[in-house]
Design a protein around this nucleic acid. Structure first.
Lengths: 279, 279
DNA sequence: GCAGATCGATACCGACCGGGTATCGCTGCA
DNA sequence: TGCAGCGATACCCGGTCGGTATCGATCTGC
């Protein structure tokens, strides 16, 4: 198998149309058909069921599609990392969701900078759920993420610390003056439906709550009395004065973890992880 | 980048000798030199420092070597999994160390077999530390492993259960009659040095204890009064009559987990995991 | 029911590239 | 200084990849 064939296969499997896939690949349709046929012959399996009107994936094709995507990500990651390693000035890209782990992040960066031989740390601010892809395709070397919200599938992690969650409410809301509440108290407020975040796929779950992408949007909507949310304590520090944070007793604890791609052998990554776990 | 180039690069990086690498690849040396040069040009980096007497890896080369190995494993995994998916009769390869999780394994297999649509489960008995490679290169779909001994780097896991550890001693040993002991009690016995297992690299750590590869060897040596060992409770069940198992209070607990490659989307794997976590 | 459109497969051709052999040039060593 | 070892270079050949033209099948609309 060659990467060329996998790239072609992914294009066809995603488009389910040889013509369109060829166009996307910037080539003519016949050699594409031939390449796929050759790949199928090599593997001894049909990957695509095709009539002259419709193309569908076989079970084996589905498996190969998933594997191919992983392989192609790994290849672009290899290119990026090799080039970065070649520059000489060691640098480290740390992916974090904006608004995440404020104080911890400061301490981590300070402590790492004090290490002998510390590399320059570039911060890569990303959206929720993006960490994984960034690490996979080599755009980032390390990430800070929130378990169990962010998936750490296929990554190595060290947990750094756990914290409870708080509900963020308009300052004037009856619940705002309570010293603690329960999940049921906030999830059952008809006038304040819970805000909805985009899932891993980028689309929003169904529900009545507002669709939000970041904390600024969210806090504004809460201040307007349109929605509410349950978030980690630390994300609810330094609130606007018109909002209140109330601990939610039975919300699952959130763990902040540092994650990196499993076979990373970079000394700089190892150093950062060591520093992080000692904080 | 193409896989051909990565395969060539790995060969050269491992041999550090173009002639030997070419021989291993079954080709002549000149085209190999050319291919490496071309790869370097594509990446815009020197990967190998070469004089006419010696070849050495650059830092970038080291990075690419690690990444390439991962990619090539992923490719052979993709081929194997695709071919297996094509056979039609769904099967599932479960990797376990021989002697591991006896009772749990029986229950798991029984429970899974009772599921509707269960696949045939093939057991792949492996050596310690081999799980990871088997999952990575597609020889196995799922593995049972012992945390923290077996590394789960780059794998998804669900922990199944935790247990304490016991010291296995000759029945006649003074400690054998104790109801519980501490690590210090067994590690400081000059006449019974702790057995040594091969590490992830396959080589044995330094030390006075006997080198062992499996439980049968081990139990025989313990019965002969040559060594001792601390292992999970369940592995010490059903002992030979001339041996004694004594709980070690302060030994770290051992967790049995089920692990699978992160982007596995096989229904059969998902089913098995679900069954396992419900046990 | 037939003409046309759509789409993948096939046939054929040219150009590029990957692999081979021969040889060069450098380096360490006796 | 001559020789052996090793990687790079020069040059040639053949396979293969990609292009154009066309076929054959299937669905659509009149």
């Amino acid at each position: 198998m060659e990467l060329r064939e996998l790239r072609y296969f992914v294009a066809v499997a995603e488009e389910l149309h040889f013509g369109k896939a060829a166009q996307r690949l910037g080539m003519a349709q016949p050699p594409l058909s031939r390449a796929i046929t050759q790949l199928e012959r090599r593997l001894g399996t049909t990957l695509l069921e095709r009539t002259s009107r419709k193309v569908t994936l076989t079970a084996a094709g589905g498996v190969l599609l998933a594997e191919s995507r992983a392989i192609l990500s790994a290849v672009t990651a290899a290119e990026r990392r090799t080039r970065r390693a070649a520059t000489g000035h060691p640098s480290l890209v740390l992916a974090v969701k904006s608004g995440t782990a404020g104080e911890l992040l400061t301490k981590l960066l300070d402590a790492y900078a004090a290490e002998p031989g510390a590399a320059t740390v570039e911060l890569l601010l990303c959206e929720a759920h993006q960490h994984q892809q960034l690490l996979r395709d080599g755009q980032a070397d390390v990430a800070l993420l929130h378990l169990p919200f962010d998936s750490a599938a296929g990554l190595d992690t060290e947990t750094l610390y756990s914290e409870g969650q708080v509900a963020i409410l308009p300052g004037s809301h009856p619940l705002a003056s309570r010293s603690q509440i329960r999940m049921a108290d906030v999830t059952t407020l008809p006038e304040l439906p819970m805000a909805r975040w985009p899932g891993p796929s980028g689309s929003y779950p169904e529900g009545p709550g507002a669709e939000v992408r970041n904390l600024t949007q969210l806090f504004q909507l809460i201040a307007l009395g349109r929605t509410t949310v349950v978030i980690p304590e630390s994300a609810g520090a330094d609130l606007r004065r018109d909002l209140a944070a109330v601990p939610v007793l039975d919300a699952p604890p959130v763990t902040t973890a540092i994650a990196w791609p499993p076979h990373s052998r970079l000394r700089t990554v190892a150093d950062l992880i060591r520093v992080a776990t000692r904080l």
